[in-house]
């Protein structure tokens, strides 16, 4: 059902955990829907220096969470904001049609974290 790359990210998710004293926190999804994600970020000079996630959900939810952290790490905030759910799914070699909605969590979570950072650091 899942591509080998999706399973690889599910088996060995990158950047799992929580950053203490994070500069931004993004939380999307809802346990009632069966999937939820929390992303914490560390920002330095407008660059995503570190990023970690926690995800409750299916194989696709975990794999897209892992992939989005990998895609975003080291990027400028504006570039990271431009990562779409579609791009995350494509980077994983696609997802089964019934699972496309799971990929919505990942980029949404990242964007929520960046927005949180920007709200906290308004000049």
């Amino acid at each position: 059902m899942y591509s080998e790359l999706v399973m690889e990210h599910f088996r060995n998710p990158r950047n799992i955990g929580v950053i203490e004293n994070a500069d931004g926190v993004g939380e999307v999804g809802n346990p009632q829907c069966g999937d939820m994600m929390r992303i914490t970020i560390k920002v330095k000079d407008d660059i995503l220096e570190d990023i970690k996630f926690q995800t409750l959900g299916c194989g696709a939810a975990v794999a897209t969470s892992s992939m989005v952290t990998e895609m975003a790490k080291g990027k400028k905030l504006d570039e990271a904001m431009d990562i779409t759910n579609q791009a995350v799914a494509e980077a994983l070699g696609g997802l089964p049609p019934a699972k496309m909605h799971c990929s919505n969590l990942a980029a949404d979570g990242l964007q929520a974290a960046i927005k949180d950072y920007r709200a906290r650091h308004k000049a």
Partner: peptide, 14 residues
């Protein structure tokens, strides 16, 4: 509590 079913099924399959 605290985890989702499909991820358990996939891990058990391994």
């Amino acid at each position: 509590d605290g985890i989702e079913g499909e991820s358990m099924v996939l891990m058990l399959d391994m």
